[in-house]
């Protein structure tokens, strides 16, 4: 049975799509057949970050409306044959998504895929609610600043009460915290919340810390998920996150400045 993972945050611009792309690619590279779905109908970005925007013919909304088959809409990644992308529609809005339609698409995907990564839009409206409704696991992407932490807290409340699992009184969604754009240097001088501060507020299992890195922007611009940039801190951090998600015991890195310094010296620093 496929595992449905929602990548969500509440707040915009914290790195949901970057994370979705990296984790989906990471899972696929580990040999698991993975699909990644863009739920941000109207503001689609995932295809850009995955570098497949020129290959989009049909999209998620077409599949829901029966205008194309799932097979026609899924785009196979050129770098990894285990990874498939289901892009969002840019010309529609989020009302085009229906709970029934989304449920059916996920059911169909579940027959064929091991992991289904849902890239949630920002906000707590329809798109975000539908992205998380069917989830088994939730990765809550948070930046180390108060507004993002507050929004994540709100999102966690919604995850606990408005999902399929809570409606059916099943085991609740497994929630993981992913701290992105983390800068140990700024934490040290008190400009940024520390991992402990965020953990204190959210009381959540920490899946990983992604350091602030130029590699992320470069990766987005070049359409290659940052996890493929194995030289970069961010790429390595995402690789750790994927291992940890799969149950491997990988120690946390990039949390303290000292370690980062050592790394910079060893690998020339990115």
């Amino acid at each position: 049975m496929a595992r449905i993972i929602v990548v969500t945050s509440g707040k915009g611009g914290v790195g949901k799509t970057t994370t979705s792309a990296a984790i989906a690619m990471g899972l696929a590279k580990k040999g698991h057949k993975t699909a990644v779905i863009d739920f941000d109908v109207g503001l689609r970005n995932l295809d850009l970050i995955m570098g497949c925007e020129r290959r989009v013919v049909y999209d998620f909304v077409n599949v829901i409306n029966g205008e194309s088959t799932l097979k026609q809409a899924l785009i196979k990644d050129k770098r990894c044959d285990k990874l498939f992308i289901l892009p969002a529609s840019q010309t529609r809005d989020k009302d085009a998504l229906t709970q029934e339609g989304v449920g059916k698409v996920l059911d169909d995907l579940a027959k064929d895929f091991k992991y289904i990564v849902c890239d949630s839009p920002a906000g707590i409206e329809r798109g975000a609610n539908l992205a998380m409704y069917f989830a088994d696991d939730a990765i809550v992407v948070t930046n180390p600043e108060v507004a993002s932490v507050r929004d994540s807290d709100r999102m966690l409340g919604i995850l606990a009460s408005k999902s399929r699992r809570s409606t059916n009184d099943e085991e609740p969604i497994k929630e993981y915290l992913l701290l992105t754009r983390y800068s140990p240097k700024r934490v040290k001088i008190g400009e940024m919340l520390s991992v402990e501060d965020v953990q204190d507020i959210l009381s959540l299992h920490l899946l990983g810390v992604i350091p602030e890195s130029k590699a992320v922007l470069n990766a987005s611009n070049s359409g290659a998920p940052v996890i493929l940039d194995e030289e970069s801190n961010a790429g390595q951090a995402y690789a750790d996150v994927v291992s940890r998600y799969l149950g491997e015991d990988t120690p946390h890195r990039f949390i303290n400045e000292e370690k980062k310094g050592l790394f910079s010296r060893l690998f020339g620093g990115k």
Binding site: R150, D151, D153, R154, G157, I158, A160, S161, I201, S203
Partner: peptide, 23 residues
Amino acid sequence: PIRSGQRIYAKGDLTILSHVGAG
């Protein structure tokens, strides 16, 4: 934990074994 945006109403005493988030 009680998350931001959640509302809880108890008819008697209310005991929370975790924190109550802002909001």
